[in-house]
Structure formats: structure tokens, C-alpha cells
Design a protein around this nucleic acid. Structure first.
Length: 563
RNA sequence: GCGCCCGUAGCUCAGCUGGAUAGAGCGUCGGCCUCCGGAGCCGAAGGCCACAGGUUCGAAUCCUGUCGGGCGCGCCA
């Protein structure tokens, strides 16, 4: 249940009854505790339009609103705010039924994320897209959307010419493919230093695009190996991606001629300097130049604009997506603006919402793009190794009695969880500073703090020999701390829906952190095991734990019973 | 040259269709354990929300400009 939506509907009806037409109620969390749990600001804005005194309108709205069973108090405050306090029985009901409401109604959403370049191994800069995309996909899934994950891997393009040419030269049985990074570097070096090799590489590109079977076979072999590296990273990260989600650039290679012919037929492209370009007026700059969208190079080759257009068409017309989410680096902003504009002109969007959800770079403490501690590289696997090692060191120091197997599991959950949370909790459109010590400090808004809160509740059940699953009934709310905690638990749905609309998982992180804080205050003030109302409080504990665990799970973060 | 993004406490970050006295964590200072994990709780100090105008009953939020920082801009993706 979404209390905020419910209050919004009831108050909007009251606004209408009070003569304010279809003015929105504008319900949000109260800004201060003395103003209750929620506040509605809509009467202020509406009163102005109607030429009424805000307080008068607010009073009429408050009187007209049907809030029985929802709000225990509804009163006008200040210049015309409506302050609302949720009824304790209502909270109690909400706790008893904590299912996620499927507001997605099966609407199909395609989400494009991770999309590593298969020419080399996954790098640290692939982390954000992979993690954010995974969390968003999980959350939309949980809300009842029909989510289709698309891993648009970079498996096609001129770069593969040199790789396959190098593979041709050294023999495909060579174990050189065991180290993709080295292989890639060698191929690149030869390409710049050896003109004859560069020529061969360019011919390979032609062969590839022409569909030469032997060349395609070599290429496929390279792709398979590279893809298995990616899968290892995905498994390690615990994200839901698998080979079934892969639909890379090469999947659209046979569509490109048709796309470009179609753009031409629609009069959207012209030849310029030998290249085929679209010049859309909205990309006209103040100096009169128009930024071009090149869909075919002067040598006849295609670029990623064409591939991406084909992908848009596939996602909207074949997959029938209503919404296509691109979780991609902010540096691609112009590309996506152009892509979406051209796709609309060509009617490839089929009315779907095409959305680029950008993110900034991960910076080190020095304010420069992040590198692993050694400064040598940015291989994602090395980075995850370091995270796990650091987490293990931490957990060993705090809780040395965990045995080897459990220690491994905890180190993984804490290490990977901390990395993910550090990223997800700061989903700004700009860059963010990654700091090992801050994210592993186990204090403040971190994954370990939330995991700890969960573990602490499990420990409480264990100490009290409580079978949490067997607890029944609806808790009666008595103390203000209980009310605050119950309210926060009930707001889970709001947090999820907020992520669904904004595609910003940090709203869920903030929610969970506030939930943990509300629990800590409750726990400090309200004894649980040695209490006359033990069952009620145990129920609150159980719902806190399950909400924490579900929320973290939707972020792709594991919980552990002891840590 | 043109364009996009960012500028909030010493540091790292929130601030949800414009709302009441701008919030957390770290760090600093001060309280709280006969009590369920102190990895905690309570409190204090710390802000011209980069700057200047504008719109509004009301602006960190919207508009314009200036100054800082990041990124991007014809045949890589």
C-alpha cells in the first residue's frame, strides 16, 4: 500500500469538493515532526488561483476529506498546510500485509545496461552501469513491470579486425587468449607499429562485415572467451545478467543497410563529405553550425548511431517496450539526444518513452578517474578482489569466531555489498568520489551498517529463542518510536515507486538508512524480549528485518545472520 | 568557438511535481551502560545553498547572466 498516493487521492477529491477543480493535493512527508507524518501543500497554490484565503480553503479541504481509517489527525497549520498523522491501526494493518503492490501492471520495460566492450576485459568504469541497471531491473520487476534486460555488448566494429588478424597470425590454438588484456594490447601495438599488419586487420573487418565464415568463426571464438570473462564478473558481483540477456551490436548487423535505406527514403539523411548524415534543426548551434549524426561513413562502414537506431526499432517494435531505459555514462548525452531525436523522426520509437539515465565517473580521492590502489590498472576483477580482501580483514577483526566457510560468505556479502552501496547511494548525475575507508567504515550510510542492523535483529531472535516466521497477529502501536518505525516500514512502497519513476536507486538507499535509524531509536527506547508487549515488538522487529533484507536484495546486496 | 552536467557544513553526500526553522554521516566537543551486539543513542558547534539579478505570497529548487570545476562536439564506440 502506498500511503502517500492514498492520501493524495483522498485530498484531491476534497479539494475538488471545496471548489478547487482538479488541483493536485501535493502530499509529501512532513518537514518537521510537530507537523505530523505527512503534509499536503496543494491548498496554498490552489487558493491563490481561486482568489481565496489559503487557510480558508485548507480548512474546507480538511473538513471535506474522507480519511477515516487512514489519518488520526488532519489539521490546518501555518499559512494553509494540511498536516496529517497516520492512524496507528492503519499502520498496524499495513504491517500485517507487507506485499509489494504491483503498480507496473505488466507494462513492458526494456533496460539497457552493463554493455561492456568485448574487445577487452571488464573495467572498473563498467561497474556503475552494471550495478545501477541491475538494481533498477530488480525494483521494476518487484513492482510488477515486465522487465527485459538487454546487454548491448560491444562485439562488433573495426576494433575486432586487429584482434582477429592477431589471432590469425599467432594461431587460434595459442593460449594467448588466456590473458585477454595482453592479447588486446599486443594487437593494438602491432596495429600502430606494423603497417602490413594494419592492412591485414582492415581486410579482416571487410571479411567480417561480408560474412566470411572462417573469419566469423575466429571472431566468435574471441567473443565467446571474452563473454565468459564477463560472466565471471557478473557471477562474482551477484548481478542477474546471464548469456540470455546478451543482444550485442552484432545482432543488428544485418539491419543496418535497411535502416540507412529507410532513413534515406524518409528524406532524413543527406550526403556530406562522402558520409551519410542527418542534420536535425534542434542541434543547430548559435554559430549556425548543425551537429551531424553520421549514419554511414564515407567508406561505406556503419557507426554506432546506425546500430543504436536498429536497437531502438527492435526494442519498441519487436519487443513492444513502452519504456526503454539506457543506463549509460553521462558522456554519451549528446549521442542519446541525437539518437532519440532521429528515432522519433523515423518513427522507430513507436510511441515508447526513450530515456537516457546518465551517471558520472567514479573518481579516486585525488579527484581523478579511479584506479586500483596499485594505480596500475582498472580491471574490474582486481577491484572486486580488493573489496573482498578488505571486507574479510574487517570482519576477522570484529568477529574472529566465524569459521572459514561463513567468513568467506560474510566477506563476500560485505565486500561486494559495500562496493555496490557506495555507488547506488550516491546516484547523482555528476561524478562521485570513491573512498575505500569511508565505504568500509561500518558507520553512517553504508551497506555494512544496514547489514549490521539486520544481523542484530537476527541475533535478538536467537537470544530470545524466537521463531520469527511463526509470529502472528497485528502489532499494537503505543510509543512514538514504535509509530515512527511502523510508519517508515509502511513507506517501503513509496520508496520503490520513487525509484521506478526517477530511475535513481539512491532513493531506496536513503529509505533503508532511515529505516535502520528508526529501528535503532526504537531499539534504544523500547525493550523487546523482556517486555509485557513482547509479541507486538517482535513483530515490529521482524518487519524491520524483512524490509531491510528485501530492500537490500532489490539493490543486489546480500544479508547475513551474523557478521 | 559551441553545447551538456555540476557548484549545499572542514570532508563525503541527501534535500522527492517550488513550501514552515536547509538535513545526514565522517571529523570536533559534551552527555548516556545493574538493560536485548556501544558497529549504538541523546546533545552542541559548524551554512550568504558559488555569486548577482529576476519570477512568486513563498526559491537550494524555476528563469537570465557571471565566475569556478568536469565532460562532450564529422567519419572510434
Amino acid at each position: 500500500m502506498n500511503l502517500r498516493t492514498l492520501l493524495g487521492e483522498r485530498l484531491q477529491a476534497a479539494l475538488q469538493e471545496a471548489g478547487a477543480g482538479d488541483a493536485p493535493a501535493i502530499v509529501g512527508p512532513a518537514t518537521r515532526p510537530e507537523f505530523g507524518d505527512y503534509q499536503a501543500n496543494g491548498a496554498l497554490a490552489a487558493a491563490k488561483r481561486l482568489g481565496m484565503k489559503p487557510r480558508d480553503l485548507a480548512s474546507r479541504v480538511a473538513a471535506a476529506a474522507d480519511l477515516s481509517g487512514i489519518a488520526a489527525r488532519c489539521e490546518v497549520t501555518g499559512p494553509g498546510f494540511i498536516s496529517l498523522t497516520i492512524d496507528d491501526d492503519c499502520l498496524s494493518e499495513a504491517l500485517a500485509d507487507s506485499r509489494i503492490e504491483p503498480v507496473g501492471s505488466g507494462e513492458r520495460v526494456v533496460i539497457d545496461y552493463s554493455h561492456p566492450n568485448l574487445a577487452k576485459e571488464m573495467q572498473v568504469h563498467h561497474l556503475r552501469s552494471t550495478i545501477i541497471g541491475d538494481a533498477v531491473a530488480r525494483i521494476l520487476d518487484a513492482l510488477g513491470y515486465d522487465v527485459i534486460r538487454q546487454n548491448h555488448v560491444g562485439d562488433w566494429g573495426t576494433g575486432f579486425g586487429r584482434l582477429v588478424a592477431h589471432l590469425n597470425d599467432i594461431g587460434e590454438d595459442s593460449d594467448a587468449l588466456g590473458d585477454l588484456e595482453r592479447f588486446y594490447t599486443e594487437a593494438s601495438e602491432r596495429f600502430t607499429s606494423d603497417p602490413a599488419f594494419a592492412d591485414r586487420a582492415r581486410r579482416v573487418v571487410v571479411d567480417l562485415q561480408g560474412g566470411d565464415p572462417a573469419t566469423l568463426e575466429r571472431w566468435q571464438r574471441y567473443i565467446d572467451i571474452s563473454m565468459s570473462h564477463c560472466q565471471a564478473v557478473y557471477d562474482r558481483l551477484g548481478v542477474g545478467l546471464n548469456p540470455g540477456h546478451v543482444r550485442g551490436e552484432s545482432a543488428y548487423r544485418d539491419d543496418l543497410d535497411g535502416i540507412v535505406a529507410d532513413l534515406d527514403a524518409k528524406g532524413l539523411v543527406v550526403e556530406d563529405d562522402g558520409a551519410l548524415c542527418a542534420f536535425l534543426p534542434e542541434f543547430k548551434e548559435t554559430d549556425g553550425r548543425v551537429a551531424p549524426i553520421i549514419v554511414r561513413k564515407s567508406d561505406g562502414g556503419y557507426l554506432y548511431h546506425s546500430t543504436d537506431l536498429a536497437a531502438v526499432r527492435y526494442r519498441t517494435q519487436t519487443l513492444h517496450a513502452k519504456r526503454v531505459l539506457y543506463v549509460v555514462d553521462a558522456r554519451q548525452s549528446l549521442h542519446f539526444k541525437q539518437l532519440f531525436a532521429l528515432a522519433k523522426r523515423a518513427a522507430y520509437d513507436a510511441g515508447a518513452s526513450l530515456e537516457h539515465h546518465r551517471f558520472g565517473m567514479m573518481l579516486g580521492n585525488d579527484g581523478r578517474p579511479f584506479k586500483t590502489r596499485e594505480g596500475s590498472g582498472t580491471r574490474l576483477l582486481d577491484f572486486l578482489d580488493e573489496a573482498t580482501v578488505r571486507a574479510r580483514r574487517l570482519v576477522e577483526a570484529k568477529n574472529p569466531e566465524l569459521d572459514g566457510k561463513e567468513m568467506d560468505r560474510v566477506a563476500r556479502a560485505v565486500g561486494i555489498g559495500a562496493v555496490k552501496y557506495a555507488d547506488l547511494s550516491k546516484n547523482r548525475t555528476g561524478d562521485y568520489v570513491f573512498d575505500w575507508d569511508a565505504m568500509m567504515s561500518l558507520e553512517g550510510n553504508t551497506a555494512p551498517y544496514l547489514q549490521y542492523a539486520f544481523a542484530r535483529i537476527q541475533s535478538l531472535f536467537q537470544r530470545g529463542q524466537v521463531d520469527a516466521a511463526a509470529l502472528t497477529g497485528k502489532p499494537t502501536i503505543r510509543e512514538v518510536e514504535e509509530h515512527a518505525l511502523a510508519l517508515q516500514i509502511a513507506r517501503f512502497q513509496e520508496a520503490l515507486e520513487q525509484v521506478a519513476t526517477t530511475v535513481m536507486p539512491h532513493h531506496l538507499c536513503t529509505y533503508l538508512y532511515d529505516l535502520a535509524a528508526a529501528f535503532m531509536r526504537f531499539y534504544e527506547r523500547c525493550p523487546v524480549l523482556d517486555s509485557d508487549v513482547r509479541n507486538d515488538r517482535l513483530l515490529l522487529c521482524r518487519q524491520t528485518a524483512s524490509t531491510l533484507s528485501r530492500g537490500l536484495d532489490l539493490l543486489g546486496i546480500e544479508t547475513v545472520d551474523r557478521m
